[in-house]
Amino acid sequence: MLTLTTIPTDVLAETINVIGDYIRGNAKNQQYLDFAMSESAVIQHLLYTMVAGEKESFPLRISILYCLQCYLYKNDIGKSMIVQIFSSQAESAANQYTLTHLLIIGYLSKDIVASWCSGIILAHVIADNQQFKEAILEVNFAIDQVQTSAKTLMEISIDLLQNSSSSFHTRIAVLIFICTWLSNCSLAVQTFLSIENTILYLISQICAQSIGDDREILIQSLCSFALGLCLLFNNNQISSYST
């Protein structure tokens, strides 16, 4: 049913929501979905719809986000599978449609919904697990076919954050992902601090004038939170930020 094109999108979205409710926090049902993933390309199809389906309805794309969040909730086995795919298939994010490459394609997309959903899913993949946070630190992606040097996911995130053309929603998703990554992970903080101008960027956003602009206040709040995490979990390995 999930792959039938004749199903009305509102029915499909509600069906996906029900699947999400059914698997959330239920290890047995999550494992069954793992089996379904290995036997077919249903998950890849849904993820492609979420990150590349600009013409698809917004409720459908958000229902896919919800279902994937439910799949990842208290599911370290599923998270581990995704992290392993990140580590083994990170050589190129261009023109490949594995689960992790679709997430990166969505993360880099100019489509607001795609970048938001991908950033939130990435945060859920590593949430509350220091091992997963450390595992993806060294993963490199060539973000296009002509780029000569690959970038880490942290570097890609910082580039998106500092890019003036990035939308408000993209910046929020990136900040949520980064804050999730930095929390309780000293190596992630060390990597973050080692990237040039990251702290300067956070401070510039915190100090920016934002009178009456709720969006900028939210950006400032998340930047303040990220800066606080850097202070709290700093392992003092970066000389410029050691105490």
Rank of each mutant, 00 (worst) to 15 (best):
A94E: 04
T98W: 04
L103M: 13
I104Q: 01
Y107V: 06
Y107T: 08
S109A: 01
S109D: 01
I112N: 13
V113G: 03
A114K: 06
S115W: 05
C117M: 07
G119V: 11
I120S: 09
I120M: 13
L122R: 06
L122H: 04
V125A: 03
D128G: 08
Q131L: 14
K133E: 02
E138G: 15
V139N: 05
Q145M: 13
Q147A: 14
T148S: 15
K151A: 11
T152R: 01
M154G: 00
M154L: 12
E155C: 01
S157W: 00
S167W: 02
S167V: 04
R171M: 10
A173K: 02
I176W: 13
I178E: 07
I178H: 02
C179Q: 13
N184G: 06
N184A: 13
L187G: 09
Q190V: 02
F192K: 00
S194Q: 08
I195Q: 03
Y201D: 09
S204Y: 01
C207P: 08
C207W: 01
A208Q: 15
S210E: 04
S210T: 14
I211R: 15
D213P: 11
D214F: 14
D214V: 15
E216H: 09
L218T: 14
I219C: 12
S221L: 13
A226P: 00
A226I: 11
A226Y: 05
L227P: 06
G228P: 14
L229A: 00
L231P: 02
L231G: 08
F233D: 10
